[in-house]
Design a protein around this nucleic acid. Structure first.
Lengths: 197, 197
DNA sequence: GGGAGCATGTAACGGGTTACATGATTGG
DNA sequence: CCAATCATGTAACCCGTTACATGCTCCC
């Protein structure tokens, strides 16, 4: 039923729907579960990984729109999975979306920075701990990005390019955390000095 | 009526509610409108700036919880504004929240990176344009951060520290965009070379 | 036996947005 | 005179989450 020819306007969908369709725009068939794993290993580093339940509902919507089709694959008897693939109409809609919808500014919600911003409410010890944990988090995310880069999964050139970017991003994030930690020590030293001297 | 003594558990509020209360935790009285302006000039660089309507509704909720109080100020006859200030109970709740609630990983939704990830759907020209625009956006945000740092508004030490961090962040964001642009050119050259040679 | 991973979904909830509504003042 | 800024709010909407429900297989 791959109807809907060229000419009908793009439905207004949340960015996540296009991201899911984007995951399907690479060759192959995938289940919702597969997509979640792939999102966790790539999308997550630069664009959040949607909840499984949302992936399932987006897939359902994409199929209703004719942008994807699914079939039931019963590979190991009794084990059922629903495999999706993108349609021509979906490929076209996705390309149109990429062409016409401006990307917009990146969305950042940095809880750690917020905590430091409210530093007057915390003990130095706690704030330090929060920052050190964040630094370690950034460092371990960096390791995960590198693992993802090494995996054969990402032989596609554009995803590889973005993983490279992500590697640099998380490197910067780690270094920025170190920098803020150093500045924080300076601040405490200065405050302590004022109080003492 | 600043009731609610120590001991009652923290209500589960969205991070934005605490962020708004945090804006009030610095000395002085502020209107919802003031808070929006301040959020646009500081919070925005590292933690999103809530919509005005949300600030108003969060303020209402904070007042109902006893974390803030408001009074009507009619400064220039007929001109009414509602000024809020934090209560002792609010100050205490905010400090408890900062102490007990882990900051969690930063949330990043990088639409530009998503576009590049789906680069196989775009013309080189368009992708370049998207990246150049993003680079300029990061550069101009950097200028805004520096302006905010220079303004007397932020004599508070912790906010100043986070603005310093934000400055480095947007610098990195700009440089990362340049890096991705260069990598993209390499990719196109390689692809072009393959096709040609 | 039980926990982890595979696999798919539904339902409730609420956070946060845009659009709407209103109206005064200031400056070009 | 009109646009921008000041100033406060309501209502509709829906994106996306968590919690719940189900059941299989593999491995310790």
């Amino acid at each position: 039923m791959e109807a809907t020819m060229t000419g009908d306007p793009l439905p207004k969908l949340p960015a996540t729907a296009w991201a899911v369709l984007g995951l399907l725009s690479f060759p192959g068939e995938r289940s919702g579960y597969d997509l979640k794993k792939w999102a966790d290993a790539s999308l997550r580093f630069f664009y959040w990984s949607p909840a499984l339940s949302q992936i399932y509902s987006e897939l359902k919507r994409l199929e209703q729109l004719g942008f994807a089709v699914s079939r039931i694959a019963s590979q190991d008897e009794l084990r059922n999975k629903r495999l999706y693939r993108i349609t021509d109409s979906g490929q076209e809609a996705l390309a149109t979306w990429a062409r016409e919808t401006p990307a917009g500014p990146p969305v950042l919600k940095h809880g750690v920075a917020l905590r430091v911003w409210l530093g007057h409410l915390s003990e130095p010890e706690e704030l330090r701990k929060t920052l050190v944990e964040h630094r370690d988090y950034a460092a371990s995310t960096l390791v995960e990005v590198r693992a993802s880069e090494d995996s054969a999964q990402d032989r596609w050139p554009f995803p590889a390019l973005v993983l490279k970017w992500s590697e640099r991003y998380w490197q910067a994030e780690r270094d920025l955390a170190d920098g803020m930690l150093a500045d924080l020590e300076d601040l405490y030293r200065k405050q302590g000095g004022e109080a003492a001297g």
